[in-house]
């Protein structure tokens, strides 16, 4: 979706990197299997993380499969599991709404593309929201509340971030035990908060040029598309506190086959993404999936 939630590959073990790729490819395969070819374009790192986070039980099984991106050499994919299927459903639900949002907010050529994609994925969206009714409801309510806040030029960063964070928190609600619901609820809420704030910081200059809503415009007093050093410190402090809450929740989860990748993503990946966003290098960073392809 946004791509901020991903591990620092150089710090993964080789076996973990292979597993990470298998989950990513597995999610893409699962999307195609459940929702058809077009939905493959919605695959993203955030929901790859989610598939790993929600996974329970023993080590995952893998199989080799061909796909349009790898037509000649089959790649290792995760075989379908409950968490992978759930991640695929939610990818479609949130992805579709993001496209619908783009159809409204973006300028003509891009808006038409979004509209077209929305129409093409409509059936997939319907099926996905039937499979995850509670999540689909949460996405719909929270996004319309967010839209309302945007129209009012809401100056509260927390209130705006809360809407997106609540969408992610809803993902944890289908967990079987009360403890896991609480832990994942807090983890995902703060993950959502961090994603929303990073996205706002990353888009600040662009939003100021185009006059679009951005909570940072109203919470702080940015000039030339940048926050003052003092404001930036306040914002990063807030991100740090959310990160602490996220890490505190994560520490309470049982270890599993994905712990290495998840820890890397949380303790290294998120701080690295934050660093890149505030240094202004995030959008220019090289294509992540092409890094060190030859392992």
């Amino acid at each position: 979706m946004y791509g901020y939630v991903r591990p620092v590959k150089g710090e993964l073990k080789v076996s973990e990197l292979e597993l990470f790729r298998a989950v990513y490819c597995g999610l893409c395969q699962e999307l195609a299997r459940r929702y058809g070819f077009l939905s493959r374009f919605l695959v993203n790192y955030d929901f790859t993380f989610l598939a790993m986070l929600l996974a329970e039980g023993a080590g995952p099984e893998r199989c080799k499969k061909r796909c349009p991106v790898h037509p000649l050499r089959p790649v290792e994919c995760l075989c379908t599991t409950g968490s992978l299927a759930a991640a695929a459903d939610m990818t479609v639900v949130l992805g579709w709404w993001k496209l619908a949002d783009g159809a409204q907010d973006k300028k003509p050529p891009l808006a038409w593309c979004c509209k077209l994609a929305c129409a093409a994925l409509r059936r997939a969206y319907k099926r996905a929201s039937d499979r995850q009714p509670a999540f689909a409801r949460a996405v719909q309510t929270e996004l319309s509340a967010l839209q309302q806040l945007e129209q009012e030029n809401c100056p509260s960063l927390d209130a705006a971030a809360d809407k997106f964070a609540s969408i992610l928190r809803a993902i944890g609600e289908s967990q079987p035990t009360e403890d896991r619901r609480r832990i994942l609820g807090q983890l995902l809420y703060h993950l959502g908060r961090i994603i929303y704030i990073l996205d706002a910081a990353d888009d600040l200059a662009e939003d100021m040029r185009s006059g679009s809503y951005n909570p940072l415009r109203f919470r702080f007093t940015p000039a030339d598309g940048r926050l003052s050093p003092e404001d930036e410190r306040t914002l990063r402090e807030s991100l740090q506190l959310s990160h602490n809450a996220l890490a505190g929740a994560y520490a309470l989860l049982e270890e599993g086959p994905y712990s290495g990748i998840l820890s890397n993503t949380i303790y290294l990946g998120l701080p690295a993404a934050t660093q890149a966003v505030f240094a202004g290098t995030w959008k220019r960073s090289p294509k992540y999936h092409r890094e060190r392809r030859s392992v």
């Binding site: 402090e237 602490n244 505190g248």
Partner: peptide, 20 residues
Amino acid sequence: MNQGGQAYRPAGGMGMMGSD
């Protein structure tokens, strides 16, 4: 709050506040 709170990080883990 000004200190950025406190949380467990494994060895080598990073924070969100940068070098400062």
